[in-house]
């Protein structure tokens, strides 16, 4: 059972490398923002799986925090790209 977590973590890391291609080559800033958001969402799953693999289920607190940070970061970036400034 524990080794299934290890295989799942490696497959998620492979998916992160696929999105990393879009983050480097990706004509313009919008494609790169989408790729960074996708990497953030996959990191949440990866954190919880590695926490259960090393038999320390308390890692999901870090995953919850990172989910909120990723969401707020993407929203702030989208607003800056739309208006050219953050407030006023």
């Amino acid at each position: 059972m524990i080794s299934i977590f290890l295989i799942s973590s490696m497959l998620i890391i492979f998916a992160i490398f696929l999105s990393l291609y879009r983050a480097t080559v990706g004509p313009g800033v919008f494609n790169r923002t989408v790729a960074v958001n996708v990497i953030g969402t996959k990191t949440i799953g990866l954190l919880v799986l590695i926490g259960y693999y090393t038999e320390r289920p308390e890692f999901f607190d870090i995953a919850l925090l990172y989910a909120m940070l990723n969401f707020i970061g993407t929203l702030v970036f989208a607003r800056y790209l739309e208006r050219g400034e953050l407030w006023s």
């Binding site: 919008f30 929203l75 989208a78 739309e82």
Partner: peptide
Amino acid sequence: FIFIANPAATHALMKA
């Protein structure tokens, strides 16, 4: 939280 936050971020990026 993920089911509510991810579509909202997608919509914000598409609108921008």
